[in-house]
Amino acid sequence: MALSSALSMAATISQTKALDLTTVADPLQFRRAVNLTDGTTAGKADKVFHDRRTLAASATEDLDLAGALLDAFGAAITFVRVKGLFISAAAANQNNLVVGNATSNGWATLLNATGTLTLRPGASVGAMAGQADPTAYVVTAGTGDVLKVANSGAGSAVTYDIVIVGASA
């Protein structure tokens, strides 16, 4: 099974100001992209996990990046390196989605041991390793492989989409 990935982040912004005789413009196009071919070294990935998930009110879940997640074909995935991570909280959520700070075996290479990201309803976040980065975001099975995702409050469930692209070696 071969994997080909094009990961990107982009922002196109145009700011203008009318002056007496002209209008000044400040256009910005910010784009970062990584194209990964099949494999496990720099610039390559061979595993992907993607899912739409729902957490009950006040619930949390631990996503084990080394052996517990299943790919689209039902095979267990063991990430050794994460090359790209994208998470999007549903706009209809009433509560925030909190990512990170697992109490045991936390995957700390992106957010450190106790770091978290809070995604308000409709918010998205993404991180990509550089094209030439041979290390990316390391996953250590059994000691550093759990990504915690939590519903920030009571009263209602939250839904989120997640995509993880990485390598098995």
Rank of each mutant, 00 (worst) to 15 (best):
64 D>V: 14
64 D>P: 02
64 D>E: 11
65 L>W: 04
65 L>Y: 04
65 L>P: 01
65 L>K: 02
66 A>T: 02
66 A>E: 01
68 A>C: 09
68 A>P: 08
69 L>G: 06
72 A>I: 13
72 A>M: 10
73 F>W: 11
74 G>K: 10
75 A>K: 11
75 A>G: 09
75 A>R: 13
76 A>L: 11
76 A>K: 13
80 V>R: 09
80 V>W: 06
82 V>S: 00
83 K>Y: 07
86 F>E: 05
86 F>W: 11
86 F>M: 13
87 I>W: 02
90 A>W: 12
91 A>I: 15
91 A>N: 13
92 A>N: 12
92 A>H: 11
93 N>K: 03
95 N>M: 02
96 N>F: 08
96 N>C: 06
96 N>P: 03
97 L>A: 01
98 V>G: 01
99 V>I: 15
100 G>N: 02
101 N>M: 05
101 N>L: 08
101 N>F: 06
102 A>S: 15
103 T>Q: 14
106 G>M: 02
106 G>W: 00
106 G>S: 13
112 N>G: 05
114 T>V: 14
115 G>H: 10
116 T>Y: 08
118 T>M: 05
119 L>F: 12
120 R>M: 12
121 P>I: 14
122 G>C: 14
123 A>M: 14
123 A>G: 09
124 S>G: 15
125 V>Y: 14
125 V>H: 10
126 G>F: 12
128 M>Q: 02
129 A>Y: 07
134 P>L: 06
134 P>G: 06
135 T>W: 07
135 T>V: 11
138 V>F: 10
139 V>W: 10
141 A>E: 04
141 A>Y: 05
142 G>I: 06
142 G>S: 10
144 G>R: 09
145 D>S: 10
146 V>M: 08
